[in-house]
Simulated scan of single mutants.
Amino acid sequence: MKVLHLIDSGGLYGAEKMLLALVKAQMDQGLEPMILSAGDPAIEEKPLEAEAKRLELPITPWRMKPGFNIRESRRILKWAISDGYHILHSHGFKFNVLLGNYPKRLRGIPMVATLHGYVHARRFSKMWFYELLDRFAITFLQGVVLVGEAMKKELPDHMVTSEKVRVIPNGLDIDAILLQAEQPIERLAEEFVGSHSPIVLGVGRLSQEKGFDRLIDSFQIVCEKFDNPGLIIVGEGKQRVNLETRVAELELGDKVLMPGYSSNVPGLLRTANLFVIPSLTEGLPITLLEAMAVGVPILASSVGEIPAVLGFGDGGYVLPESSDINDLGDLMVDVLDRFQDRSKVDWSLKEVASSYSVEWMERRYREFYRRATAS
């Protein structure tokens, strides 16, 4: 089976890592996957493309003008048909909207989508409009995958019980993650880790819904308790300037590092004393699974699938829904004070190995493709 994965990637985060792991597993099972990586013509190479090349995975960079580029979507569809792809698999609203609105008889190829999560954008903003279109477009697809049960509330009511909707949690190539965790981290981060203790780590797109402003504000409380703590926030995005400004306002410049993208997040997780997910909305973050596999204590917001994945507290510390900045800061201090307690870490190590393997995820997707192509 030839599978064309469609994505307009904004970095190397959860959706991208899940896709790379899935493609490798599909190749191991004899499928013929290809990643089509869309991007603005001015972009020479995206992080996803560089990582796919490093892993020797098939990828086709496709440069196109941003927005509703109908003409280019037709070119992509024509190329997919001519190359004999059996199914299109979209990862993100761009291709859900551009190709999902074609009726199957006109598209000529069945199409499915994985919903990695919505950002719940401000009403009438550009992103709010895109999400509205996305929720409309997915109703025309042959299949929709949710990364967790909690995401069902994001669907139109008539789709929640639909036969074409399936829940397939993200999976992880645990052996590869553990191997990568042993590799050196970037020099800037290594020097920072060497001169600060304890280390708090956050990873994700620098966007409002990720809640890194809350993490920075609450980190003041950690600084009051410990002599020389360090906060590393890995990622890029539109909120960088705002976050850097807040760091300066709080006079935390010598205690906060924002190095941009990292090619070795598992390595950073290995060096951290605490991994924090302060998000306002999530699906099932791949970085959460990576943290579980590496064995770092976890503190996370009670959003999306996070509470369930962490066993509602058995595998990590879950913030109450009504928590504020002070609650987050106090809990960080509490966890760091007793991080020698390995009971939650041990639970997470067993859980990620048994329930979130990439092999299990690939098998579920293969079955899903067969159902979608037969419909």
Rank of each mutant, 00 (worst) to 15 (best):
M151V: 02
H91P: 08
F312C: 05
K238F: 12
E44R: 07
P278Y: 10
S125F: 11
A176G: 13
F312V: 01
R54C: 06
G253H: 13
L201S: 00
R214S: 11
R338S: 15
R366M: 14
E182L: 13
R122H: 14
S323W: 03
S355T: 02
E224D: 15
F275P: 02
I306L: 09
R166D: 13
L284W: 09
V160M: 14
A372T: 05
I87D: 09
V112H: 11
F140Q: 14
S90P: 04
L57G: 00
A15D: 07
K24H: 11
L188R: 13
M127E: 15
Y261L: 15
S218V: 04
L289V: 00
L319E: 06
C223T: 12
A15L: 06
H86W: 01
V112D: 14
G108E: 03
L336D: 05
I306C: 03
V165C: 04
E282Y: 13
G235Y: 06
E149N: 12
T287P: 04
I185Q: 02
E191D: 14
S9K: 07
A150C: 08
L310P: 08
V335G: 08
L132E: 13
D173K: 00
Y369I: 03
V358G: 09
N96Y: 08
E131H: 04
G39Y: 09
E182P: 05
F275G: 06
E224R: 15
R363S: 12
D173P: 01
P184H: 05
Q26D: 11
V358R: 10
G143T: 02
G202A: 09
K126W: 14
N326M: 11
G329R: 03
Q183C: 08
G92Y: 11
V203T: 00
E149Y: 12
S90E: 12
M34D: 03
K255V: 12
Q183N: 14
D254V: 09
A25F: 10
K2I: 01
L48W: 13
P320A: 12
F93E: 13
G84K: 06
M1G: 02
E249W: 08
Y130V: 13
V247R: 00
G235P: 01
P33H: 02
I221V: 15
E351T: 08
H158D: 12
E72S: 05
A300C: 08
C223Y: 01
V112W: 09
Q29I: 11
L274D: 07
M361P: 04
D213P: 03
A300L: 10
L155V: 06
S263L: 01
P278G: 12
V234R: 04
D83Q: 15
L250R: 15
A272G: 07
R371D: 14
G316C: 03
A42I: 03
W128V: 04
F95I: 06
L146W: 11
D173V: 06
P259Q: 08
F368I: 01
N170S: 09
P47S: 06
E290T: 05
Y130A: 09
L48I: 14
R205A: 09
G211Q: 02
G202R: 05
G204I: 00
E359C: 03
V222T: 01
I87G: 07
G202V: 05
M127F: 11
P110E: 12
H86M: 02
G260D: 07
A137N: 10
G311M: 00
E45V: 05
G329L: 02
E362C: 14
V97W: 10
E182W: 09
P110M: 10
V247H: 06
A121G: 15
E367T: 07
E16H: 08
K350I: 09
D314R: 15
P229T: 00
L4P: 00
K164G: 11
